[in-house]
């Protein structure tokens, strides 16, 4: 490949020009990451879900998970609230409608694919990664199995293969990362007969969600769950009943979990630099005092001898 002098100069000037333009005059000292701009997300409209569990079946099939203990058609699973585990990456739970006489509410649960995931911030081997496409994915090849991700996740999502003695892995929804990176859509979204889920750019989904909420205030409550929760999630929910009545935590705040340990980690270099300086100072001080005591004792002895 040959690059002409003219072309080279042109590209250089373009690059320097771009760098001049892109840096704002008001650059903030510590800019906060607000999520990859082009990330995908999924909007779940809880009012449309009928609890058919087609999404669970599709997820099971696409991830080649073992057959469930209770068949997907069996309604008896709704008798108790379930969570995800190493063999089930998504579950649909049934909650009684808080409005008297209203139909039961079905809520699909899976990894929320946080914009700044607690699991990724906790992991000491970078096994979790928030991809630019949106999914939070896991790398089994570096995981040491400390399970700090599970302790850190506020949504109780990551699960562990406890019964696997030699190659245990953390298991969770991948938002069908492989499919969406080949322009596909997640299996659960595709399988849903009610179009309860919409896949798309997260920024578009927020607009769609807001439109529905604004246009039909008698159906929806005015909250898009995941828009701001712990700094935003790729998975978004809108609902007809208050979220706290259907198993959502409302006390998580809007601060990304990564921020919670930032202060501590930021203090580490301070300790590493200031602590040795301080301790060496103390050591020198102690030694000097000892030397003074010793010389004084010697002088005292000399004086005594002279007398």
């Amino acid at each position: 490949m040959e690059i002409s002098r003219r072309k080279f100069l042109k590209s250089i000037s373009a690059a320097s020009g771009a760098s001049l333009v892109s840096k704002s005059q008001f650059a903030h000292g510590a800019e906060r990451f607000t999520g990859w701009p082009e990330r995908f997300g999924i909007l779940t409209d809880i009012t449309r879900c009928v609890g058919c569990r087609s999404c669970e079946a599709a997820c099971n099939e696409i991830n080649k998970l073992p057959a469930p203990k209770i068949p997907f058609e069996d309604q008896s699973v709704f008798e108790k609230i379930r969570r995800t585990d190493a063999q089930i990456y998504t579950v649909v739970n049934r909650y009684p409608n808080p409005k008297p006489g209203g139909p039961a509410v079905y809520v699909k649960k899976q990894c929320m694919h946080c914009d700044e995931p607690a699991c990724a911030s906790a992991c000491l081997v970078k096994a979790f990664k928030k991809t630019q496409e949106g999914p939070v994915i896991y790398n089994k090849d570096v995981c040491i199995g400390c399970r700090y991700c599970m302790t850190a996740c506020p949504f109780y999502v990551p699960a562990y293969e406890y019964d696997e003695p030699f190659k245990p892995e953390v298991k969770k929804c991948t938002m069908c990362f492989e499919r969406i990176s080949k322009d596909g859509i997640p299996a659960c979204v595709e399988a849903c007969p009610m179009e309860a889920m919409t896949f798309g750019k997260r920024s578009d989904l927020i607009r769609v969600a807001r439109k529905r909420v604004i246009e039909q205030p008698d159906i929806y409550i005015d909250h898009i769950y995941g828009e701001h929760e712990i700094g935003g999630t790729s998975w978004l929910y809108i609902s007809g009943v208050p979220f706290e009545k259907i198993g959502f935590r409302m006390d998580l705040g809007t601060t990304p979990y990564a921020e919670l340990t930032k202060g501590f980690l930021g203090a580490v270099p301070l300790v590493l630099i200031l602590w040795p300086a301080f301790l060496i100072g103390v050591y020198m001080f102690t030694r000097r005092r000892q030397e003074m005591v010793e010389t004084e004792a010697e002088n005292f002895e000399i004086e005594e001898d002279q007398q």
Binding site: V125, V142, Y160, T261, F264
Partner: peptide, 20 residues
């Protein structure tokens, strides 16, 4: 889960955001 990977955080894949 995989104790034999104990040196991983030191040498193989270093997760600098982790307190652990």
């Amino acid at each position: 889960g995989r104790p034999w990977r104990l040196p991983y955080p030191m040498f193989v894949s270093v997760g600098v955001t982790s307190v652990l």
